[in-house]
Design a protein around this nucleic acid. Structure first.
Lengths: 388, 388
DNA sequence: ACCACAAATGTTAGCGTTAACAAACAGCGA
DNA sequence: TCGCTGTTTGTTAACGCTAACATTTGTGGT
C-alpha cells in the first residue's frame, strides 16, 4: 500500500530513477457460490452448480430448537422486554445455530409496513443525482429503511408509470423522485398515490400539489453572480441550462435578479448542460474579440464551464485574465480544471439526508420541513477582478 | 424549449446582440400529498396532514366486486389462460375501479420468490460504479426484478455485513456487489450466503470462490500502451491507482506486460485515483525538464489524467507535443479536457446488463458466463507521435 | 335428451409472521 | 395453604396470496 498520500513516487531505470517492478497477478477463475450456514436444517452444500437451496429455517423451527413457542422467539427478535434472560439466551443460541433470519415478507404482510423506501432516479446519472441518491440511501438505512431503486430514461412517461407501479407493488412506505424536468414534475403532480411522494429537485411554480426539496438554486445563482459583481464585472453572460429543466430556469432567474439589483443587464445564452454547449459559447466569445474590457460568464453547471474553458484555452483567451468563469455544482473534478473552477457548491449528501427526514415525517403523519438546502461558493482560480 | 441543439444563441443589449429576457418564476409552496384512487374501498382524501391510509383493496374484494372467486382474479393477474374473456374483462374492470395492486409480500410469502435483486455499492460513487448500477437496474427491471440498493463506505466491514444482512432479510434472490478493493473481495469470499453472489469488479487472484465480472482491465491497459507504442513512444510512465484496488493492479500489470513485449521498460508511479495525484506527477515531470525527447504517460483513470494535464498546462509543458497522455474510463468530461483526452472506454451499461444476465443464470441453476467485457480506445487530442 | 369430457371457476390449506388474548407460573401476604 | 398479584410463556387467528385439488359449467356426439 504505497499509494498513501498519493505522492508520485519516482522510479529508477533508463531515463528515470527507481522504477517499481509491477507485481504479477493470476488468472480469472470460475465462480463458486457457497451455500447457507444454517446447518441445523440439514442441507446440501453444492459448490458450483448450486442446487436449489432448502427452505430457510422458520421461527417455529427456532422455537422448537429452543424449546419455547414461536411467539417467544418473536419477542426476542423484536426486543420485547419480559423474556427471562435465560430463555432469551437459549433462543439466541438457537437462532445463531440455525442461521435464522426473519422472513420480511411474512412480517410485512401482517404488520402492513414494508420498511421500504422507493427511489426513482429520472434521467441522468450525473454527479448530483448520484450523490443525492447515496445520501438518501444512507439516511434511509440509518432509519432502518431499505431502499428500492428504479431508474428511468428522461422523457419516458411510460417508464415513469412503471417505476411508480413497481414501488407501489412493493408496498413502499414513501417515494422519492430525483428529477428536475418540468414534464416529469407535471406528470407527477397529476398522479394520485397513497403514499407520500417527494421530489428532489427545484420547485416549479404552478404545481402546488407537488412536494419538492432541493438546494436553493436561486440563491446559488445569486451567490455566483454576486461574486462576479463584487469583482467589478458589469458584462455578464449567463450560460443557462435547457429550459425544460426547472433548476436551469431557477438558476437563470436568480442570476438575472441579482444582476438587475446591481443595475447590470446580463446576456442570456442557452446551453444544454453538456460541455459541448459551453465550448460553442467559448468559440463565439473568442471570435468576437473585444479588447475593451473583461467579461464574466456564469455557466449553469460545471460541465458547460469545462467546455467553455476548453474553447477559451484553445483560442488563447486568458482565464481569468480576460474572461472570468463561474460554474455550478462543484463536481470533484472542478478543482482541477484549467484553471481551477470557481463554482457553486451543492451539498447533495445533506440534501439526501434532509429529504429522507422530510419524507419520513410524512410517513409518521407529521409535517415535513421542506426548507431548501443552502449552497455555498467555492472560490478558485477561474475568476478575477474585472479591472485586472 | 430553445435549448435545442445546444447552440449558443447570442443576445442583444449593451455590448452584445439580442439578449433573452429571463422569464420569471414563482415561489416555493408547501407540499401536499394526494391519496389513493381506489374509491371503492371508501377512504378519506386528506390533502395535507395525510391521515393513515385505509387498507388497500385485496384480491378478495376485487373478486367480490367482479362476482367471481379470488382465485380467478389471481389467474387473470398472473396471465393464466383458461379464463373466459368476458370474465377477464369484468375482473379487469373491477381491478381498475378499485385501484387494486397485488400484495407482493403475500405473494413472496407463498411463492418463496421475492423477485428482488440486491445491489451493494461499495465505496465510491464515481462515474463507473454509478453507470454500472444504472445498467444493472435497467437489466433487472427488464427481467421483472426489482433492485434493492445498499451503499457502504469503503473499508467498513461492519457496514458490509449489515448490507448483506439487509439483502438476506429481504430475501433477495441474488446479490451483486459493486466493489474493487481487495479487502472487500477477501471478506466476500469468506462469506457464506445461500443466494448467488457476483462481484462487479476485477477478479483478484487467489480467491477462487469469488465470481467476478468486469471490463477487461488488463486488455484496456494494453490497448492504451499499445497506442502509445504505435505512436513511437519508448519512454512511458504508468501512473497507477492505489494498490488495494484490484483494477489498479490489473491495469498496471497489463501495461507493464505490453511494454515488456515491446522491450520497453516503463516507470511505475503510484497515484490514488484523485486528480491531485496526477497533478503531483505533472509537476514532477515539469520540474525535470528533459529536452531530449517525448514522454508518454498512461494514467490509470481519467481523473488523474485531468490533474496531470492541469499541472502540465500550468507549467507550459505542451500536450501532446512534449508529453502524450492516455487516461482510463472515458468519463463524459474527458472529451472536453484541455486537450481532449485519449482514453480507454469501458462500457459500463453493457457490463451491468451482462452481470444481471450472469446472476440470473445462477438463480435459474444454469452456468453463468463471466467473460469480461472488452474495452475500446477513444483516440483524441492528448496523444501524438513521439517524433512530433 | 343424455353422457362424456374439457373448459372454467370455486374451495381449501398453507406460507411465516405479529397481535391479541389466554394460560401458567412465580412471589407474597394472610 | 390459599388466593392474589404480576411476570413469563403459550394459543389462536389473521394478513393476502398461490398451489392443488374439487366442483361446476359448457360443448359435442349420439
Amino acid at each position: 500500500m504505497l499509494e498513501g498520500r498519493g505522492g508520485a513516487r519516482a522510479a529508477e531505470p533508463p531515463w528515470w530513477p527507481g522504477a517499481v517492478p509491477a507485481q504479477s497477478r493470476r488468472v480469472l477463475r470460475y465462480p463458486e457460490v457457497l451455500q447457507g450456514v444454517h446447518s441445523g436444517a440439514g442441507e446440501h452444500r453444492g459448490l458450483n452448480g448450486m442446487e436449489k437451496r432448502n427452505r430457510r429455517p422458520s421461527m417455529a423451527e427456532v422455537a422448537q430448537h429452543a424449546g419455547v413457542s414461536h411467539q417467544t422467539v418473536s419477542r426476542v427478535i423484536n426486543g420485547f422486554a419480559g423474556v427471562r434472560p435465560q430463555t432469551k439466551e437459549r433462543i439466541e443460541a438457537a437462532i445463531a445455530e440455525l442461521g435464522y433470519r426473519r422472513n420480511n415478507a411474512a412480517r410485512t404482510l401482517v404488520t402492513r409496513r414494508s420498511g421500504l423506501l422507493g427511489v426513482i432516479a429520472a434521467g441522468s446519472f450525473l454527479y448530483g443525482p448520484t450523490s443525492t441518491l447515496a445520501g438518501i440511501e444512507e439516511a434511509a438505512r440509518h432509519r432502518s429503511y431499505t431502499t428500492l431503486l428504479a431508474t428511468i430514461r428522461e422523457g419516458a412517461q411510460q417508464e415513469f408509470e412503471n417505476a411508480i407501479g413497481v414501488c407501489l407493488d412493493r408496498a413502499v412506505e414513501a417515494i422519492v423522485v430525483i428529477a428536475a424536468q418540468e414534464d416529469v414534475m407535471r406528470y407527477l403532480s397529476s398522479l394520485s398515490v397513497d403514499v407520500p411522494v417527494i421530489v428532489v429537485g427545484p420547485d416549479p411554480h404552478e404545481l402546488p400539489s407537488l412536494a419538492t426539496m432541493s438546494v436553493d438554486q436561486n440563491e446559488g445563482a445569486r451567490l455566483a453572480v454576486r461574486h462576479l459583481l463584487e469583482l467589478g464585472h458589469r458584462r455578464i453572460v449567463l450560460l443557462s441550462g435547457p429550459e425544460r429543466w426547472v433548476d436551469a430556469a431557477q438558476r437563470t432567474k436568480g442570476a438575472v435578479e441579482e444582476c438587475a439589483a446591481a443595475g447590470v443587464d446580463p446576456v442570456v445564452v442557452h446551453g444544454d448542460w453538456t460541455p459541448a454547449s459551453g465550448y460553442r459559447l467559448g468559440r463565439e466569445i473568442a471570435e468576437r474579440a473585444e479588447p475593451e474590457g473583461a467579461l464574466a460568464v456564469f455557466a449553469a453547471n460545471d460541465a458547460m464551464a469545462l467546455g467553455l474553458l476548453s474553447a477559451l484555452h484553445e483560442a488563447r483567451v486568458e482565464v481569468p485574465g480576460r474572461v472570468s468563469v463561474v460554474g455550478f455544482d462543484d463536481i470533484p473534478e472542478a478543482e482541477f480544471f484549467t484553471p481551477s473552477l470557481t463554482t457553486v457548491r451543492q451539498d447533495f449528501t445533506e440534501l439526501g439526508h434532509r429529504v429522507v427526514e422530510a419524507v419520513m415525517a410524512e410517513v409518521d403523519g407529521q409535517e415535513a420541513d421542506l426548507t431548501p438546502v443552502p449552497p455555498t461558493l467555492s472560490r478558485r482560480g477561474s475568476t478575477a477582478s474585472a479591472c485586472g
